[in-house]
Amino acid sequence: MRILDAAALLAAEPGEEVKGVNLLIPADYDILWSIVVAVIIGFAFYRLVLPKFTAVLDERTEKIEGGIAKAENAQAEAAAALAEYHSQLAEARAEAARIREDARAEGGAIVAELRSKASDDAARILENAQRQIEAERQQASVALRAEVGALATELASRIVGEALADSARQSRVIDRFLDELEATTVESGAASASRES
């Protein structure tokens, strides 16, 4: 088509051959339209395209840097939390150990206290028992003494008649008799005493 156009142009202006040098000499309309499109393209890039893309690129850079900073913060926070957790864990362990130790000590104290209390009780019970036994022994001894005295007196009075009716003398005789008897008993040793208790 272009060939035909050119041929038509040439045909329309016979004799006017297009010279090669014309390729290098701009026509006025060529210059004008060149300036027009240059201004249009320039305006688009200067005012619309580049500012927008620059803004987007800057924003992206900012976002990425912000993201990196954020990640670093998060990491630092995580590390701090971990350290805190570890310290709390150690603290808790120490606390637990302390409580256990306390409990053990307290338990020991309680056991010791109970033991001493029990041994006190035992001692008291023993003492009471001994005291009671002693009292009973004395009671028995007194009762026995009276009874033995009466029996002996009666026996003796039956044997020796009325001679010993005087009670004072009677009593003295009996006491002397018993003292002698007791002395012989004490002498005879611990065997008889233990048999009494």
Binding site: R2, I3, D5, A6, A7, A8, L9, L10, A12, V18, G20, N22, L23, A27, D28, Y29, D30, L32, W33
Partner: peptide, 26 residues
């Protein structure tokens, strides 16, 4: 038709003869 430099001077179709002349290349 061998190509010639006339290729680059197509006929104007608007505003011919003025600085606003438009041809195919414009």
């Amino acid at each position: 038709h061998p190509p010639s430099i006339a290729e680059f001077f197509p006929a104007a179709f608007a505003f011919e003869g003025t600085p606003f002349e438009m041809n195919r290349i414009i």
